[in-house]
């Protein structure tokens, strides 16, 4: 049990995908313009991560080493497709604003990295906890970035405007704002000792 908690918590702190491993930057930078989008992306990635880890871990002794990457991609793509259809059916607004970034979860390097580095070498239960921890760590990371960018760039929190004004720091919801926020947060997490130097 202690081991499982460790596998779970490392994805949120030391090996946080966003601030520690610095993986999955494409969705992190592109989707973090609003908190709503970021949460949606985080939950979708967590779902895929948990189930792909589960299946890959369960099949780890049957997948031949030489073709493991294509096999992982087929498994991951299955869950991404399920996820995409579900979002389009039940949350069409989110589906619209995330656009191409939902199918792109297939090649999200966090998921590939956990499949290769963890799920293919560990039993099912730790793999599930690893996927869950990594997914929640990613969701937290992208949501913190999105919260700051949305607040400074368009003066709202998850779509709810705080002030009736349009003189916010426009650059924060543009690409440079994503890189600035990300860089400063990585520095902060290292300063606080959450991730390693």
């Amino acid at each position: 049990m202690k081991n499982l908690i460790k596998e779970f918590s490392k994805g949120i702190t030391v090996l946080n995908p966003t601030f520690g491993l610095i993986l999955g930057l494409c969705p992190t930078l592109a989707v973090s313009t609003s908190l709503f989008n970021a949460l949606g992306m985080g939950v979708a990635a967590t779902f895929v991560l948990v189930f792909s880890n589960l299946i890959i871990s369960a099949l780890r002794n049957f997948i031949p080493g030489r073709i493991r990457l294509p096999a992982y991609i087929v498994i991951i793509a299955t869950f991404v497709t399920m996820c995409e259809l579900a979002i389009k059916a039940y949350l069409p607004a989110l589906g619209q604003s995330l656009g191409i970034f939902i199918p792109l979860i297939v090649v999200n390097c966090i998921i590939m990295a956990r499949a290769e580095a963890f799920a293919s070498r560990n039993p099912v239960l730790p793999s599930i906890f690893d996927g869950l921890g990594m997914g929640i760590g990613f969701t937290l990371g992208i949501s913190i970035i999105a919260f700051i960018r949305e607040l400074l760039g368009s003066g709202s929190i998850a779509g709810f405007g705080l002030l009736k004004s349009n003189e916010f720091i426009l650059v924060m919801i543009l690409a440079p704002g994503a890189l600035l926020t990300m860089g400063l947060l990585i520095a902060l997490s290292r300063l606080l000792g959450i991730t390693k130097k």
Binding site: I169, L170, V171
Partner: peptide, 8 residues
């Protein structure tokens, strides 16, 4: 450049 991008 920051000002230019933020408050054109």
């Amino acid at each position: 450049v920051f000002l230019m991008a933020s408050w054109p």
